[in-house]
Design a protein around this nucleic acid. Structure first.
Lengths: 229, 229
DNA sequence: GGGACGCTTCGGCCGCCGCCGAAACGTCGT
DNA sequence: ACGACGTTTCGGCGGCGGCCGAAGCGTCCC
């Protein structure tokens, strides 16, 4: 069975709560220093370092030195996709402590899922773009010709997304909402454009996104998108 | 971070070569007794029983008693999808022994990927159906209106696939070919139809498919599909 | 250059887990 | 009813791996 895949090595890499926590923290596509990951996961710096080495060894995470810090991030979009698929199977971890609620609410509103918009913002946009005829297939989110023009008008790099090596569009299951949001090369291009235009801003330390005033008004006017829970 | 997913429990479930081998054996959607899995993975019956209990506990496989035997199978299509996504990251296990070559060749030609056709057969069909205009998007495989009629003419249950809870179509990365094959509700409907019509037959003990004479001729005539490597 | 800082490496401890054989349990066939 | 068979449970062994503190290494800052 030379076609068999070895799930055990990757499985081992995922198999501890600390490493799972690290991956969750990195799933928004950000780069984070080892110390921050250690503190967030509640392990000592030395333990975190060992865990991170294992994740790098497994090819799930890459490390970039920046001065005396080392920044870790997911290795690849395919890693994020695999973790998303696994997340569909995994139960959400129980809420620990009441301080989480505001934070969780914040994340549910708008966040990045590796390189594309997720949360209520991501799913609402996907829904709106399907209704506008820009994307076809409620659960497929295929780009239509109308969508090509529409996204171009938003100054999203549609042409780059059309010739990218990975699929132009992909429906990514949103863990907090029940609906998919837009991923794939176009999803990433949309995310870049939203950041570049300042419609969303990455939250400093946290994982969420702030939606700026003009962006929020634009969203509500054009697509009837509301971020109310 | 109540949105976090616990990858560690599922990771543990995947984290041994024996359990990885079991999942590989079950990825074609078949149900297999514990003893067969034990023998295939090269562990004792008692060890296999423990491993299978762990996989059941993790929700990855289910167990159905049949007489004095117990048949194990993947729990769900979402499990197969997650394993596919993980398989993209995982290296293929090294070929062990030359006897594998015929077997591997056999699997590369045609096999089931949980509930849909894969291997050269699956990817060639997907390509042909894109060229025929039945599916749109080389890497998306969205169903077109022409495709609805076409698949109906093949007596594939298109309408069931259109209203299924899961996406109608999904592009599933084929590990042996470089191209995607058709998955999702329609992929499963196509697989059922091919079995029902006798165009393909599940191989007795192995994981491959036999393509029957009439089916093969039909494939070649209608879609120019060849199974030659 | 000296000290603070971030990270990794090392050594040692402890617990978990994979492995097996033997025994128990339930089912099938005669 | 009895033995054969498939599977699970149990007990015990051995090794891997997660955890930490201390020490080592490189970088930044005054």
């Amino acid at each position: 069975m030379s076609r068999d895949r070895d799930f055990s090595t990757i499985g081992r890499a995922l198999a501890t709560p600390a490493r799972s926590a690290f991956l969750n923290l990195l799933m928004d596509g950000t780069s984070r220093p080892a110390g921050e990951l250690a503190q967030a996961a509640g392990v000592s710096a030395s333990t975190a370092s060992e865990h991170l080495a294992i994740l790098v060894e497994a090819g799930l995470v890459t490390c970039a030195a920046q001065g005396r810090r080392r920044l870790y991030r997911l290795a690849d979009a395919s890693v994020a996709e695999a973790l998303e698929a696994l997340g569909v199977l995994a139960d959400p971890t129980p809420v620990t402590g009441y301080r989480r609620s505001r934070q969780a609410e914040h994340l549910a509103a708008a966040r990045f899922c590796y390189d594309h918009l997720a949360g209520r913002l991501g799913t609402a946009l996907a829904r709106a773009w399907v209704e506008a005829g820009w994307l076809a297939g409620r659960d497929v989110l295929a780009l239509t010709t109308a969508g090509e023009d529409g996204f171009r008008a938003l100054r999203v790099d549609v042409d780059g997304a059309l010739v990218a090596r990975r699929p132009t569009t992909r429906a990514c299951p949103d863990w907090t909402e029940r609906r998919p949001h837009l991923a794939g090369a176009l999803g990433a291009a949309v995310g870049r454009r939203f950041l570049e235009a300042g419609w969303v801003v990455r939250h400093r330390a946290g994982r969420g996104l702030a939606v700026t005033g003009p962006g929020l008004a634009e969203l509500r006017e054009r697509w009837g998108v509301s971020l109310r829970g």
